[in-house]
Deep mutational scan, measured.
Amino acid sequence: MSIQHFRVALIPFFAAFCLPVFAHPETLVKVKDAEDQLGARVGYIELDLNSGKILESFRPEERFPMMSTFKVLLCGAVLSRVDAGQEQLGRRIHYSQNDLVEYSPVTEKHLTDGMTVRELCSAAITMSDNTAANLLLTTIGGPKELTAFLHNMGDHVTRLDRWEPELNEAIPNDERDTTMPAAMATTLRKLLTGELLTLASRQQLIDWMEADKVAGPLLRSALPAGWFIADKSGAGERGSRGIIAALGPDGKPSRIVVIYTTGSQATMDERNRQIAEIGASLIKHW
């Protein structure tokens, strides 16, 4: 067993022997301040990774656009098919120029040779490549099948209805392509620590998230040296922004954090800054 596999296998073990965790309302004060600064709703939840206990939450059962955070769930569904012998990570998928959609920095470079399922998941999570996500959605049967996968996990809230990039439209009061912070946090925890996926697939999923290259201005910008984070960000229309993450000190994750916002007129930089400040408060009061 590799060191990384050992780390993920012992996530519940280490967490069980940690000192009790206590909620700190100071972080919620910052979440509410972010709402004021952005002029928009902000949803927040913080779960203990081992027990699933909610440590703090704000608007945990209000719907927010998922945006690209759905790509972690998508690759979880792909990995479940791999575990069941219905898919192979090494299978190569070929596609054409007509398949390319807006923001496809990886797939646009491989029109000639195609990409493997493993490479597509890596591109979808680490670079948020939209064509990679659409190609992977095709392998599982489309958005409705991802929703069905989530329902089978016990998540009857999260739903995907459309493809990239239309799913980022974020129309107010439109339930399409949305989740709730509580539902997303619980589902992410199941994917990373539950028995739904094999140990190898859980490790692969967290490795992809740990290698995320496009979430630097968010929670990662607030992390002290030595902290662990595996995350996936999302951005959408109407001032929408979000991030889902597993993080913790001492090089291992111990909490799940989900943050979503929508309806702001603020710039992307300002949305990023507010999420980073929430992260800084979380870490300060850990």
Rank of each mutant, 00 (worst) to 15 (best):
A200I: 11
M268W: 09
E87C: 07
Y260P: 00
I278V: 09
N168K: 02
I283E: 03
V72C: 07
T147L: 07
E102D: 15
K53V: 13
G52S: 07
N173I: 09
P217C: 07
A225G: 14
D33R: 15
I54M: 11
V101I: 12
D33Y: 15
A40K: 03
H110I: 05
L199N: 15
S96F: 11
E26A: 13
L205H: 01
R273A: 13
R241I: 03
W227Y: 07
D177N: 04
N152I: 09
D250I: 09
R271D: 06
G226S: 11
K32A: 14
F58I: 08
P172C: 10
Q37S: 13
R202Y: 05
E237P: 15
A40M: 09
N134V: 04
D177F: 01
A77E: 09
D161Q: 06
A84N: 14
A200L: 10
W227R: 00
D113A: 12
H110V: 05
R189D: 08
D113Q: 12
I3L: 13
A246V: 13
G39A: 14
T262G: 05
A280Q: 15
D231N: 05
L197E: 04
A280H: 13
E108T: 10
I45C: 13
R63M: 07
H156A: 15
E119I: 01
K232D: 00
Q265V: 12
T131S: 12
T112W: 15
P105R: 05
L135N: 03
L205D: 00
R92D: 06
T193G: 15
E35W: 01
R59L: 04
S240Q: 07
E270C: 12
R7N: 10
K232A: 01
G236A: 09
E46G: 05
T147A: 07
T198E: 11
Y103M: 06
F6W: 08
T193A: 15
Q37C: 11
V157R: 12
R159K: 13
K213E: 09
I54L: 14
V8M: 11
A84R: 12
L135V: 10
H24R: 13
L167M: 12
L136E: 01
K252E: 14
A246Q: 05
I243R: 00
E270W: 07
A225H: 14
W286C: 01
R92E: 08
R41G: 05
G114D: 04
G39R: 14
A77K: 10
H24Y: 09
L188N: 02
I125K: 00
H94M: 14
E35F: 02
L196C: 14
H110C: 08
E164D: 01
P253L: 10
Y260C: 04
A34E: 03
V42F: 14
G248T: 01
I256D: 00
V8C: 14
T107Q: 01
P12K: 08
A170Q: 07
F6S: 08
S128W: 00
G226L: 05
K30M: 12
W227L: 01
P143R: 04
L150D: 01
S281H: 13
K30Q: 09
P224S: 06
S233D: 00
M66E: 02
T261R: 03
T139E: 15
